[in-house]
């Protein structure tokens, strides 16, 4: 357990000792705010955060892989992976340590959007429960994207390649659930197949959590997704760490 904490602590610190954290936070906060107001936050004349949460999947498609790409690609490129895995650390501990550090970093980014709920509370009487589930959904979604990013960071030593691959993978999972895609697919695929694609998409599950309904199927979707991609990362890393 101490090895997990050591990796976790080091990784989280490394975000803040390099400019990554600050660049990431500034850009994330700017766009999360900008897109919210551009979507017509005031025009809606409703005290809720729908306009804010609506844009998060798209923003995460780009932002989360950029936070995840360095996790293992950097380690393998610099060679510090040889140091890490000649210390008494198992692959699983290291993968989990890094994953949770990056997840906490994304959680910090989400927490820093606090002026948004404060604004909404100041302007009206929003449903606090809805805001909390919205954040919970966003955090789970960030975790899912991060697990995917983590996997592609293991696959390639090159950060650019791992970034592009994870953006594509995340985008596919988001856009698969958009009505336009589903309508198009339903013109030539049977309904069962289309609804299978819909249930595999981030969008569907994120929206249903955002509505304030915490269903087992949505939570288990994110948990399974994270566990699956993290397990895949561990297996691939164990194979490729020295190559």
């Amino acid at each position: 357990m101490h090895s997990f904490w050591a990796v976790f602590k080091r990784e989280l610190k490394s975000y803040f000792t390099t400019p990554i954290a600050y660049v990431f936070l500034v850009i994330f906060l700017f766009f999360s705010g900008y897109l919210t107001f551009k979507q017509g936050f005031f025009e809606m004349r409703q005290a809720d955060m729908r306009a804010f949460f609506m844009n998060l999947p798209l923003l995460f498609v780009f932002m989360v892989p950029s936070a995840a790409m360095r996790l293992w690609a950097e380690e393998r490129r610099v060679g510090s992976i040889e140091l890490l895995f000649t210390l008494p650390i198992t692959v699983t501990q290291a993968v989990l340590g890094k994953f949770f550090a990056a997840w906490l970093f994304l959680a910090i980014a989400l927490v820093l959007t606090f002026p948004m709920p404060i604004t909404v509370c100041y302007l009206g009487n929003p449903d606090i429960g809805l805001i909390i589930t919205g954040y919970l959904g966003s955090l789970l979604m960030a975790g899912g994207f991060l697990a995917i990013g983590c996997f592609f960071s293991v696959v390639s030593k090159n950060q650019v390649i791992s970034f592009v691959l994870s953006v594509v993978a995340c985008a596919v999972l988001v856009f698969a659930g958009r009505p336009t895609t589903l309508n198009y697919l339903s013109t030539f695929f049977p309904a069962g197949f289309v609804s299978a694609i819909e249930t595999m998409s981030f969008q569907t599950h994120f929206e249903s959590i955002q509505k304030g309904v915490l269903e087992f199927k949505d939570l288990s979707y994110f948990v399974l997704l994270i566990v699956g991609w993290i397990a895949a990362s561990s297996i691939v890393l164990d194979e490729r760490k020295a190559s």
């Binding site: 510090s80 040889e82 140091l83």
Partner: peptide, 11 residues
């Protein structure tokens, strides 16, 4: 001690 003594450069 590995060849080229790898370490975390930013630390």
């Amino acid at each position: 001690l590995a060849e080229n003594s790898p370490a975390y450069n930013e630390m």
